[in-house]
Each structure stands twice: as structure tokens, then as C-alpha cells.
Nucleic acid binder design. Structure first.
Lengths: 152, 152
DNA sequence: TTTAATCCCTATTGATTTACTAGGATTTCA
DNA sequence: TGAAATCCTAGTAAATCAATAGGGATTAAA
């Protein structure tokens, strides 16, 4: 029931990217330096964000990544789902009409799982990247934010 | 970000127990038969529920388990936390004042994790075992509910 | 035109967690 | 006493996680 480092690092990386990519592309190396996340691992996370259409890449020297959408069009849910896959705490076929679970009609716990899933998704979909970037800029004066290997 | 079988099986087992324990203790064997969950595994789950004070055990022949509290005093949150440990999607020391995370003050993602954690906990704490048992009784006529190896 | 800075892609690996299984010890009732 | 139950500890195969590794392709700048 835990969010993995993919989601935790990835969201931090994307906030960083959003903050620094207004003028020029941001390289993986620079995010890695500021956030203390392995370059090689970050590469894999950026690939997922790219595939999901949240960032685009610019190859070659001087290249890097920039946002593909506006910050106010990217929700935390979009980011976490891109990185972690679907966020449902329980995936049961009873919740998915097509898949046909035989006992779906009489299954009681189904409603519990549905409520948990809904609450998670609603929460993450209600927070936009823009809010987080604004917040982060305000706090920027407390320099070198993440240099101590925070895992979240 | 998934609930494990501990939580999924365990909640089903406890609903079953609540339903059948009004007159006499319910044995692991009988829950296992009805719910299609391994006896040995169920034992371990029941041990956790007992430790959490949700059920009590009666040893020896004719023994089994009964609820230790009233059904309307046991929330799904109580059950899942007993089985899975804390349900927080992200545990970071910044959320826990005592533990002292150096960057907590300037950390932006902290608020995201807090919101996710809160929404999960609020959701599961708002559903009481009693509701689920009522629902289950209503549906009981659609016989042999869980005999087909449902994993949820 | 070379070189360095980038992103791109696939595979491997060590550690941890999950979902059980196994073997017995203990308690209680008939 | 013997059957039916819980209790307790340990082991284990499979999956997942969190990286690491090694190269390849592209592009800008020197």
C-alpha cells in the first residue's frame, strides 16, 4: 500500500523540471544533481513521463526536457499514474464491467475497494502541478532544498 | 500502491466471522471452506486481528473466534491497519514532527503525501463492519458467494 | 568535422516483500 | 485419551523494487 520511488522521485523531478525549464531545456544531469536521484534511474522515469505526453525531449548537446503541457493542465494524478500505473489499491474484475467477475453482484468488499480507489484518484486529480511549483518557488529561499537524500 | 492479500482476505474473513459468530465461535476451517482461503494463511491473519483486539479466540475443540468488539465499533480502517500496518501511501519523516526531517519546512511534495494519506484513512474509517455485514446478509440468497477463488 | 553533451533502449542484479507452506506445541471438550 | 481446535516459529518460491550497466543515436557547439 505504498507509493514506490518511481512516483515519489518522479513527482519531485517533474516539479524541478517545471521550475527550471521556462527558459531552456532541463537535462537529466541537472535534475539529478539538484534532487539527488540517480541519473540512470531518472532516465527511466522521464521515459515514462514522455510516453504519457507530460514532457517532451530535445536530443543532443544543450538538450533536455521541457513540459509538453501547461503546468495547470497536469495533475499529480497524471504524473503518478504515468509512473506507477493505475493507482487503484485493489483491482478486481468486479469493478470493471467488461471483465466479468462471477460473484460481482453478491460481493460486499467490492464497494469498499471502489471507495478507496475513488478517494485516492480524486485526491491526486485535484492537485495541479502549478500549485506545487508556486509553492516551491515561495520556499526556494531556504536553499538547496533536497540535497540530503530525501526519499520522498 | 496495492493492498495485499492480507488486507483483502482478512476483511472478507472478518465479515464472514461476524456473520457466523453470533451463536458460536467460528473456526478457521469453516471460514477457509466458505471463503476459499488457505487455513494456514488465515491463521496468521487471525493472529493479527486478535493482537489488534478485534477478535478473541477460544481454544480447544469446539473453539474458534468471535468478535471482541461490537460490529459498529470496528471500522474497515481498523481491520486493514491491523493486517497491513499503517495505510499511508508515503511515510516521510516530514509528516511526523518527532522524527525531524531537515527539509520538511521547504518540502513541497510533503503536502501531496499528506493529502493522499488523509483521504485513504478517512475513507476506510468511515465504513463500519456492521454496514458490510448487513449488506452481505441481504445478498446471502445468491448462494455460495465466494467459492470461485475471488482474490479480493 | 570532430567532440562532447545529451537522450534512448534493453538487460541484469541484489535486496526485499509477498503469499504461502510446514511442522509441531498447546488447549479443550467429549 | 483422542479429536478438534488455536498457537508459534520457521522456511521458501516467486514476484517486485530500485537501481546499475552498457552501449547506441542524435545534435549543438568548438
Amino acid at each position: 500500500m505504498k507509493l514506490s520511488t518511481k512516483g515519489r522521485y518522479g513527482l519531485r523531478a517533474l516539479i524541478d523540471l517545471a521550475q527550471y525549464s521556462e527558459e531552456e531545456p532541463v537535462s537529466i544531469t541537472s535534475i539529478s544533481d539538484r534532487q539527488g536521484i540517480s541519473e540512470r534511474y531518472l532516465e527511466q522515469l522521464m521515459a515514462k513521463l514522455k510516453k504519457a505526453g507530460l514532457v517532451k525531449s530535445i536530443r543532443g548537446a544543450g538538450g533536455g526536457y521541457v513540459l509538453e503541457k501547461n503546468m495547470n493542465e497536469i495533475s499529480v494524478g497524471d504524473v503518478l499514474r504515468a509512473l506507477e500505473g493505475n493507482l487503484d489499491a485493489v483491482q478486481c474484475s468486479g469493478l470493471n464491467p467488461e471483465e466479468g467477475c462471477k460473484t460481482a453482484d453478491s460481493c460486499v468488499t467490492k464497494y469498499v475497494w471502489q471507495k478507496i480507489n475513488d478517494s485516492i484518484n480524486q485526491t491526486v486529480d485535484s492537485i495541479m502541478l502549478e500549485q506545487l511549483v508556486e509553492e516551491s518557488k515561495k520556499k526556494a529561499y531556504t536553499e538547496n532544498t533536497m540535497q540530503n537524500g530525501c526519499k520522498n
